[in-house]
Structure formats: C-alpha cells, structure tokens
C-alpha cells in the first residue's frame, strides 16, 4: 500500500508534481501513465526517498520509506536500468545491495536465475545491453522479496520475450498479494498489464480508476454497422447526441446508440443490416480523451502513438 497526500515537487520554478493524492493498493498492478515529464519518475523517486517532497508526503505501508527497519524487504525499486556501476559485475552489484540487509548469496543466486542472467552474472554491468540492464534492475528490486514493487519503464529496451516475462512477473507478484506500481508511456503495455491506472499530466492526476472503467467512461460507445441503405438507416436513427460516420470500407460508425436500439430501429424501418458490432474503446482513445483538455499534450500523445507502432 502506497499513500500520497498533496505530494508536491518543485525544481526551481518548474512544478514536476503538483499536490497529488493517490493510493496504490495491494493485489493488483497499478499503472502510472503519462507522457515524459508528466511527473511519473519524480513521484516514484519521492516514494523511496531519493527526492524530498517540496510539500505533502508519501507513505509506504503506513510509514515514510526511510523509517522502515528493512527498506529492501518493504519496497523493491527499479528506477533506471543503468543504476549500477559499469565496472562491477552483476553478481557483485547484487551481493553489495544484499549485504546491507544481511541477505545471503543464495538469494542473490535466486534472483539472478529469476531474471535470466545466469550466463551474464560475472560480466561487468558496463557491457550490458539496455535489456540486460533492465533485468539486472529487476533482479535487484526483487532481492528482498518485497511487499511492494515499483518499476519505472521496465520494458524499455527489452526484447518481446523479455516484455512478456515482465508482464507475467508483475501479474504473478500482484496475484501473490503484493503492491505493484509500474510506470510507462507505452499504452499497449499498460493495457495488457495494469488493473488500475493513474494518469498523470503536467504533475496532476488526470484520472485514477480501474482500467476497464477508464476506457468505458472516457470513450463513447460506438457501433459498427454495414448496410446497403445507409441513408435510410441514418434517418431512422436520428436523435440527440447520435452521430453516423462513414468509414473507408463502406461501413459506418454509429455513436450514441446501443446495438440493440440500432437493430430495432432498422427492423422497424425495413433496412437490412449485414453487420452490427459494438466497438470497444481502446486505452489509447480513452487517454486521448482524458488529456484532450491539456492542449500542451496533443503533440506528446502523438509521439506516444508513434513509439507504440
């Protein structure tokens, strides 16, 4: 459980995190979503005490992180895949971190295996690819078998097999009852991994809801319809808030009316229908709609689009 209250971080005149409140609950994967510069990393750094809040506070299981007797048993954190000395081997890096809490070499071996680093464990971290760096960072985060796991952009640089591994790992950790907080600007990854989302923009919480609710609430329900008599159908279903858009493939998208109502209206008007299908909103659509007011982010969300494809 992570609990933030009016958490604020200013760097000079720039406000990175602007008085946010949120709770991250155990037993599920919570995603911190937002464009670069939205305050995701600053928020995570404040959770583990690397940055000091300008105002407000954040607690992990009821206490400030630094007040825990065994911080590594409480929170495992990956903030940067490069947070290891390039001149030190992966094994020594992990042994040094483990030593602070009296964690033994057996556990270091275990996390090395878990992260799939057996063959690279005695190589210096400086020779690692970004993906291997991420694996080393995740191994370090798991050293203390922590109740809370916090990972900042963990799939950056991972190959498809690695991405799948992280996704499965996070789902398993959450299923074991742990608190899992994950940040990403990759919406497809979030959509497949997170149960709950906190959307940040310009240091503020734009949305904080279960993934499903977020998508349903922020995207208008649309129904894909195919008929040879589109104009007759359109006049049969006119009404307030209902729009009909023609699609490139000859079908049409009806917004503001359920498939049942469209079917009934078509039957009453004697219009044949070849296809009626509810189109589920995507996280991307929801995200665009949530951040639509934040004009500053139009271009940034476009960037996120590109990175995804």
């Amino acid at each position: 459980m992570i609990h933030a209250q009016t958490l604020t971080k200013r760097f000079g005149s720039r406000t990175a995190v602007d008085g946010i409140d949120f709770t991250v609950r155990p037993g599920q994967v919570t995603g911190l979503l937002g464009p670069n510069g939205a305050g995701k990393s600053s928020t995570m750094r404040m959770i583990v005490g690397l940055d000091r809040p300008t105002r407000g506070e954040v607690k992990v299981n009821g206490r400030a992180y630094r007040e825990h007797r065994a911080p590594l048993r409480e929170v495992g954190v990956l903030l940067d895949a490069k947070a290891a000395h390039p001149g030190r081997t992966a094994r020594k890096h992990l042994l040094a971190l483990a030593a602070t809490h009296g964690i033994e070499a057996a556990r270091v071996r275990e996390v090395i295996e878990l992260a799939g680093l057996e063959s690279a464990a005695d190589r210096r971290a400086g020779s690692f690819s970004l993906g291997m760096g991420q694996r080393l960072g995740i191994a370090a985060a798991l050293l203390g078998d922590p109740a809370t796991v916090i990972l900042d952009e963990p799939v950056n640089g991972l190959d498809p097999e690695g991405v799948l591994w992280v996704r499965t790992l996070l789902r398993t950790l959450a299923a074991e009852g742990r608190t899992v907080l994950l940040s990403s600007h990759l919406m497809s990854e979030m959509a497949q991994t997170a149960d709950h989302l906190i959307v940040l923009g310009r240091g503020r919480v734009l949305a904080d809801a279960p993934l499903r609710d977020l998508i349903d609430g922020a995207t208008a329900s649309a129904v894909r319809v195919r008929t040879p008599q589109l104009s007759r159908l359109a006049s049969a279903i006119t009404g307030h808030g209902i729009t009909v858009t023609t699609l490139d493939d000859g079908a049409a998208l009806v917004m503001g009316m359920s498939p049942e109502h469209i079917g009934n209206a078509a039957a009453a008007a004697g219009v044949p229908l070849y296809e009626v299908a509810a189109v589920a909103g995507s996280l991307e659509d929801a995200y665009m709609s949530i951040t639509a007011d934040e004009a500053e982010y139009r271009s940034l969300t476009t960037t996120a689009h590109k990175e995804r494809s």
């Binding site: 040094a96 971190l97 030593a99 602070t100 809490h101 033994e104 078998d145 109740a147």
Partner: peptide
C-alpha cells in the same frame, strides 16, 4: 494490509538494515 510472504531461502527471518551489513556492502 501488508501481504503475508512466504519465507525465501537466503533471506534470514530477521533480515534488516544494520550498520555491519552496510559496512560489508
């Protein structure tokens, strides 16, 4: 609601931050 975690090999039950450990680190 801290999760009840199984004991893991290599993590002593009394594992916590100690100055002697930091010195070793």
């Amino acid at each position: 609601s801290a999760a009840v975690l199984p004991v893991r090999p290599g993590i002593p039950a009394d594992s916590r931050l100690r100055f002697s450990g930091i010195l070793r680190s």
